[in-house]
Design a protein around this nucleic acid. Structure first.
Lengths: 226, 226
DNA sequence: ATAAAGAGAGAACGATCGTTCTTTCTCAGA
DNA sequence: TCTGAGAAAGAACGATCGTTCTCTCTTTAT
């Protein structure tokens, strides 16, 4: 019911078709996702892809280009699935549920290791570097997609709802990997249903506001990790 | 109001006091958290810690021991803050709020890069390896802490509530780093308050609908950042 | 048919990886 | 006082890092 155009989250030039290139990208995607990026060397990838070094550097001028192509591929996959969910949905609210099911279904796939973009972000800290830019571009794309769908569904505050949706997705993805996938799925589905309730009951939005919480707690030393 | 014992998430032997060791650990914690683990070499750490290689290997038989000591330190810090929150809270429900404030306050600290354990998990895939075991031990500890606190607060489904609490924390931590911290904080605080409502308004059955959320004060300026 | 491009095979670059080593100096405990 | 541990200093190990190179096929387009 919505049309979606492919979106480029990187500055990579259009790739030529090539069996060797496809093997490289497929191998890199599998290994990068399963084991991380910085701990995997080029030798390992060209070895498992059965490709020579020269061929690798003909298609990817540097390892960074391969990483970006990997992220672009994951994004394209995500994009295709979201488009399919929207095409199959009978209305925008249904689309949000289907997209959610897509997400929670992944938690149970063998080899699931969380979100490829979140994982990549943990390995590259420069917020202006090409990898982080790709991560943030993907996330902005997803947020906008969800926000537009909430808006189409008639949600009174689509931006707010989208932020919560994205945050719940982040939590379900992480907790589904490092914890119990079933509980993550249940919690996510429940929360999405709560968000969608405002579409059917739009008049009830002025419930008593919750007390504002004081952020400066009595705890002293602030340190850096969460 | 609760006493908490320190907990070992690694198998490291007790460490001796040493200025050089402390400098190494402090430096490693800073760099590992800011830039990742696998992409940082030992030379870099001993250089910034102003320590020689021999001294490093006297205190840490291998780089992996340094990584584990780093995770243990983050856990100890987390543990101390949770204990302080519980000590300062007037009741278990209040403790959950204070712990939550601790979490959301971190999103605004300069240099915040998400959860150190989630980041570490993305770089080490072996679920039986010592690093992943430390990550999972820390998460199990936190989940149990939250569950016990929910139970003490009289929540009808403490395990379910704890799973949601942890998942919301994961989402807020990630979304607060890769997105807008303000929206992440608001969404987290609101959701925690929703979870705590079951203490005052006991649940009906085993599939309790969540109370309505308040939307009015949610859209405070900043939108999803990139 | 001819030229251009893609791919295979493998040597080699300097740099850095994690780790081990020897040597010297300092300082606190016995 | 003697002893032994901690720390500084730095050379060196083999391995791997990302990258560049030459040289020889095979495929494809003109």
């Amino acid at each position: 019911m919505y049309s979606q155009t492919t979106m480029q989250i990187t500055d990579l030039p259009p790739a030529k078709n090539s069996a060797a290139r496809e093997r490289l990208l497929e191998t890199a995607a599998r290994i990068f996702y399963a084991e991380g990026i910085n701990s995997v060397g080029v030798d390992r990838i060209i070895g498992e892809a059965a490709v020579t070094r020269a061929t690798f550097y003909r298609h990817f001028p540097s390892k960074q280009d391969l990483i970006l192509a990997y992220l672009q591929r994951v994004h394209d996959d995500f994009n295709a699935r979201a488009a399919a969910a929207q095409a199959a949905a009978k209305d925008p609210g249904d689309a949000l549920k289907l997209i959610g099911h897509n997400i929670t279904a992944q938690l149970f796939e063998p080899g699931f290791r969380g979100c490829a973009f979140i994982n990549a972000a943990s390995e590259f800290e420069d917020p202006n570097g090409p990898i982080m830019r790709a991560v943030l571009a993907h996330r902005a794309w997803f947020h906008d997609l969800v926000r537009d769908t909430f808006a189409a569904a008639g949600h009174p505050q689509p931006d707010f709802a989208a932020s919560r949706y994205v945050m719940l997705r982040d939590g379900a993805t992480t907790a589904g990997y490092l914890g119990d996938p079933s509980q993550a799925r249940d919690a996510f589905d429940r929360s999405v249903a709560d968000l969608l309730r405002f579409i059917d009951e739009p008049a009830e939005t002025d419930a008593p506001p919750l007390p504002r919480m004081n952020l400066t707690s009595s705890l002293t030393g602030a340190s850096f990790q969460a």
